[in-house]
């Protein structure tokens, strides 16, 4: 899809993630395709249950049991990684793909000092002596903006505040200079002022290291500030994917349009917010045709039976029959 000839760093093709249950399979991610170029920040946005975290988890090979990649391919620098055995995938995680999770307290081990955790990760992936690894750990902590890093390195996670912990987690993700970082709601647990600091830090690090980021979040504001391109997900499918300015300012898909209207904005005097009635369907009852059709105000008969495919609209790709030459059939 990308116009450049450069090989994409990460390519997801027709990914389908299923959770087998006694009452049949739940499809958490359904036919998702996306690419991330080196150094690019791709935002993945959606409401709870949209499948955005599952897409991220599938890429790093950490789908919660019993979830599994049912079909589709995930390629990292042209090489398939979705079917690798556990041990091989473990070597890729941390080395070539870093991960930042939502809650910095649970992603650090409370029984080890921050330094021990950093040194362990560095030595797992890089051939460095204990001393060299520790020096690198201090450098990393300084880089993510932790003051007096040489003393702080011997502290335990509980001695850090939330924002500082998230900085440690970012340092951990950067240990082996991965080409790609999966950041799953990295700022959701933080206060606005700390959130602004972390966003600025992630942006700076990507620029300096040329790291690509898949930024999974529900917060359009964070996406607008950070991402180059954004994929909007709904009920396990991509509704719209395109340059962030286009999606944020003139959303094409009716869902994205409603979503943007429902976000209260500072300084915009509106009496009522645009509201999308209803809520995201449960995975057990995804409607046929377009998954958004029960809540859509522009639906036609075609939307009820035939699932829309991503088609180019301006610079984006949109999955909506409204933009198809044959229309919604209305």
């Amino acid at each position: 899809m990308s116009t450049s000839k450069q090989q994409p760093l990460l390519e997801v093709r027709n990914l389908r993630v299923e959770f087998p249950t006694r009452r049949g399979s739940l499809i958490a991610v359904d036919g998702v395709s996306m690419e991330i170029a080196p150094g690019e920040v791709l935002g993945v946005v959606g409401e709870s249950g949209a499948g955005k975290s599952m897409t991220g988890n599938a890429v790093i090979g950490l789908l919660p049991s019993p979830g599994r990649v049912e079909s589709g391919e995930i390629l990292l620098e042209g090489e398939r990684i979705d079917n690798l055995p556990y041990e091989q995938m473990r070597k890729i995680r941390g080395k070539r793909i870093g991960a930042i999770f939502q809650d910095p307290l649970t992603s650090l081990n409370p029984l080890y000092t921050v330094g021990e955790q950093l040194v362990e990760t560095i030595q797992t992936h890089l051939d460095l002596s204990e001393k060299g690894a520790k020096d690198r750990a201090v450098d990393l902590l300084e880089e993510v903006g932790i003051p007096s890093a040489r003393e702080r390195i011997d502290h335990y996670p509980h001695q850090f505040s939330g924002g500082m912990r998230q900085r440690v987690v970012i340092a951990l993700a950067l240990c082996a200079e991965p080409r790609l970082i999966i950041a799953d709601e990295p700022t959701t647990a933080l206060d606005v002022s700390i959130q602004a600091q972390i966003i600025t830090l992630i942006k700076k690090l990507c620029r300096e290291h040329g790291t690509a980021v898949m930024l999974v979040t529900h917060d359009m504001g964070v996406i607008a500030e950070t991402a180059d391109r954004v994929a909007v997900m709904y009920a396990g499918r991509i509704a719209e994917i395109g340059p962030v300015a286009e999606v944020v300012k003139n959303a094409n898909h009716p869902y994205t349009h409603g979503l943007m209207g429902s976000i209260p904005k500072v300084g915009h005097e509106v009496e009522r917010l645009t509201q999308i009635d209803g809520s995201m369907p449960r995975l057990t009852e995804i409607p046929t045709g377009c998954a958004f059709n029960p809540r859509c105000t522009e639906k036609g008969p075609r939307c009820m039976v035939e699932r829309p495919i991503l088609e180019p609209v301006e610079n984006s790709f949109v999955a909506c029959w409204k933009f198809d030459p044959e229309g919604t059939g209305a």
Partner: peptide, 23 residues
């Protein structure tokens, strides 16, 4: 500083200087 920390949805591209430190 709180107002300045709100993510910018209008994408005016203004540069923010987040205030350092925490509560």
């Amino acid at each position: 500083f709180l107002l300045d920390a709100i993510p910018d949805l209008d994408m005016t591209g203004k540069q923010r200087i987040p205030v350092a430190g925490e509560v």
